[in-house]
């Protein structure tokens, strides 16, 4: 028997454990177990074989997709951080509290709007005969092929991650003690030196978290490489969908998923160590 107070406590504590246990932890564990199962006559059968792992990891297609995805996501994290930084700087140091909060609230909105429709809009905007090429053509440039390329993919990634990166960066920049910056000025540091020696180290945590989130979101994104990058070369997310949807090879798609999760965990762990570790 549990007493009344215990009942009260469990009422609030259990829902998360039950729901996310049954529908988040268990499905992921099941997926990991599934990598050892066999597919026979389009049906999965419990087994313990390494066939799926050997088949997937033995294929050049997988490793090509792996390195392309890793490289592009890392690039997206870097580009997003660099592109976002001046905007975050302006928000943190050149704007009042109220204005900053308003801008950040505006930036949260696209995060919750359909990325699929936004990607479709880019398809139209960047098309061979689309508005951007029309404007460039007006000044005698182009037309440029922007879709079905890594450029298209990157536009998609940046649309997805930029707002979030700006938010992370602005938070950490705005939290820097102004006295620190003024001290650097008073001690004769140039603006560049102040940025490199004072501001960047002090805002390290937010800058790194922004980059890591950009990496994680780009790494798993399916829409940008598929609809703006033309699926060539396929990324890991495209590989998972193709393997799942055609041929019912769920266990092999699961192998790709597990490899992705391991990569993401390793990256996140390394980044967190850097972000929160001893200041160098």
């Amino acid at each position: 028997m549990i007493d009344r107070s215990g009942l009260y406590r469990l009422t609030w504590r259990l829902p998360l454990l039950l729901w996310q246990g049954a529908f988040f932890v268990v499905p992921l564990c099941f997926m990991a177990a599934m990598t050892f199962w066999l597919v026979q006559n389009y049906r999965m059968e419990p087994a313990f074989v390494w066939t799926n792992w050997q088949r997937m990891l033995g294929r050049a297609v997988f490793w090509d997709a792996y390195w392309v995805t890793l490289w592009r996501a890392a690039l997206a994290g870097l580009i997003a951080s660099v592109v976002a930084f001046p905007a975050s700087y302006v928000l943190a140091f050149r704007m009042g509290e109220a204005g900053r909060r308003f801008v950040l609230l505006c930036l949260i909105v696209p995060f919750f709007t359909s990325f699929l429709v936004r990607a479709y809009a880019w398809q139209v905007i960047l098309a061979e005969s689309g508005p951007v090429n029309a404007v460039l053509g007006g000044v005698g440039l182009g037309p440029f092929t922007m879709l079905n390329s890594s450029f298209g993919t990157m536009v998609g990634y940046l649309t997805l991650v930029l707002p979030l990166v700006v938010i992370f960066q602005t938070w950490s920049l705005a939290a820097i003690d102004r006295a620190l910056i003024e001290a650097a000025w008073n001690l004769g540091a140039t603006p560049v030196k102040t940025l490199l020696r004072v501001i960047l180290p002090a805002a390290r945590t937010g800058l790194l978290l922004g980059a890591v989130f950009a990496f994680i979101m780009s790494f798993g994104d399916f829409v940008s490489p598929a609809y703006l990058g033309g699926s060539k070369p396929p990324t890991l997310s495209i590989l998972i969908i193709d393997t799942t949807k055609s041929g019912q090879q769920w266990p092999r798609a699961a192998v790709v998923s597990v490899m992705m999760i391991v990569t993401l965990f390793a990256t996140a762990a390394a980044a967190l160590r850097l972000a929160y570790g001893r200041r160098g």
């Binding site: 454990l17 499905p27 997926m31 798609a253």
Partner: peptide, 27 residues
């Protein structure tokens, strides 16, 4: 661990969630 469980799902790529959910819900 409890808080990690509470906040982790959005960091998981949706394609992976899709596959895991499909497999588990099929069961």
């Amino acid at each position: 661990a409890y808080l990690a469980l509470a906040l982790l799902p959005p960091t998981m790529p949706l394609v992976i969630m899709g596959l895991a959910m499909l497999a588990w819900l099929s069961q």
